[in-house]
Design a protein around this nucleic acid. Sequence first.
DNA 1: CGTTTTTCCGTAAACGTTTACGAGAACACA
DNA 2: TGTGTTCTCGTAAACGTTTACGGAAAAACG
Lengths: 351, 351
Amino acid sequence: MIAKAGGRNSLASSIHDLARHLNISIGTVSRALNGRADVNADTRQRVLDAAKKLNYSPNQSGRSLRQGATHSIAFMLQPHPGDQQYGEPFFIPFLIGLQGRLAESGLDLTVVMGAPGDYQQERLRRVVETRRADAVLLAWTRREDERIDYLTQVGFPFATLGRSRSGGKAYPSLDLDFEKAGSDAVDRLVARGHRRIAAIRPSLNLNFGHLFLNGYRKALKRHGIEVDPSLIADGFINEAGGYQVTPRVILAKDRPTAIIFNNDAMALGGCKALAEMGIRPGHDIAVTVIVDTPLCRYFSPALTAFRPALEPMGRRLAEMLLASLPAFAGPEGPRIIHEVWPLELVARDSD
Amino acid sequence: MIAKAGGRNSLASSIHDLARHLNISIGTVSRALNGRADVNADTRQRVLDAAKKLNYSPNQSGRSLRQGATHSIAFMLQPHPGDQQYGEPFFIPFLIGLQGRLAESGLDLTVVMGAPGDYQQERLRRVVETRRADAVLLAWTRREDERIDYLTQVGFPFATLGRSRSGGKAYPSLDLDFEKAGSDAVDRLVARGHRRIAAIRPSLNLNFGHLFLNGYRKALKRHGIEVDPSLIADGFINEAGGYQVTPRVILAKDRPTAIIFNNDAMALGGCKALAEMGIRPGHDIAVTVIVDTPLCRYFSPALTAFRPALEPMGRRLAEMLLASLPAFAGPEGPRIIHEVWPLELVARDSD
DNA sequence: CGTTTTTCCGTAAACGTTTACGAGAACACA
DNA sequence: TGTGTTCTCGTAAACGTTTACGGAAAAACG
């Protein structure tokens, strides 16, 4: 048992207190507060005033229990193992957009942290089974994603940041166009005279890594350049991973003149490896990063990267989730929306 | 109204289902599940098995309502305005530690986002008044902190990352020793021959800025160096702030040979300003940053900075919060603990 | 004035738990 | 056998809401 938060009687003016104070029934109070039609205008005003005066606001557990809805959306924030130093600054602007839009519909956003590494399955079950949220938002989707399988199986509403092959098209999803970014990156490098272009991506079967590589391959073929497997490498999605795997492509028979990293942390680790081998990004080799973060901007040389519009994406995904929920959808009923957003090239000094 | 999450009847096996399935009363089921003594060992096992089989887990709203406790702790995450690009990577390792320790005591951590800029007061009220958490955790404490005033006034349990003058010593707090860091930074610079040392800190009355300046001043005096007000500047706690305010100290009558920044984002902005003035950190001027982040490491030149042990701090603050709650305190009863943790110097290339 | 409609409000059930209380059964003990 | 103790469980109330239902009073209408 836990202490009653704040002492139930100091803070907690219940609807009964309010009713007693006004000499009316709790039913009427509730109806007044919830804006129902069948309550006299005067009465409503009196209730509203008293609520403000007594500092009343409804107990969330009570509401949730009665209504079967928590009025909150859970975002599953999952730190990658070994990512401690770096964190997920990626998500903050995204979360700001998310929270802003949800608040407009009276929903709370709660970010639920998982322990690094367990890929959320356990935390997710917990959120769902104890009904702590009305819907969840997933990120870092994988090609085959057990979380998506689980949620669709139990019929819990959700939306994803990122696509997946799991679960069909039954849930809203918003993703970045990693395929186009990979392709654009290659185009740009080819235009600058490169033919030996390496690609480094995370080794988990994260879907964006897959998409990126698709784009990379297609673009190379389009330019009549053979795809050389020795120029493609997978590594852990963190700095150590980039550091570890970059030498592998450098030591290929015919050394690449450019590397595209699919992740900023990996790029940073990769640049460290390059430095140790005496290879200078921007001089001896071109480096491009697919998802831009502040780190890319401040690194030296500043890394050319593809930038997402995180805050608008957050807003939009919230909107898409709402549109899929019967209770929030417009008159035409719930809709499942899928969108793919572009990444914008930010040319800097590393290529 | 919102859709009953997942459809109440698909997911939700209630305790009644379980009881019916086992042909015993819900009371017994509950007692068995909660490990109470007055239930037969066989019965308990049967209940546990059935619970697993039927995938039962108690409805959180029901529990909370009955117990007057939500079994969750809220961390108020507050993005600073204009901080969109940068985010709060600072907090991620901290949150990991926090969540780890709380989970060990069966508590959930929910991060509640506020809109940038409103300093949380509204969100905080909402969390407290609707009783969405059993306690809250505050960060970015200010010298006079209305959030702390509010929480102490209404008697809601909380702890803070950072100190404040508000609320006395009535709540657990964990802070970094910014005073010592400021002092150490000066010591180090003086030892390296600097006498004209500037200090740049956030303009909000954030408490750490105050502490930092204290340490800075004391150390200067200790070394017999006069504190020159024209070498001290305040700015918005973001990159733009640093960029805007740094020239002010540079253009002082007697140009400083070193700058201590009290915030990494401000340092980055400051370095940009320096670059535009043709002043190279590490060559023409020494730069020290008080709170280290990955950005400091990757910047060029890599910035000498003072580093906190974020993840252990998160664990520890969770522990301190628990120790202050009657329901979780040991047999000796609740204790209010205050701790101040050191920052560790990481010498790099900028000084 | 009688009848119908409308307006407004109180009553009570329900949401899913936990837990105080009491009672029956089994057991121990003299 | 009678009495007291221990185990084990069922009953029912309570947590704070929302809402279906019905009814009294007021208003409208003929």
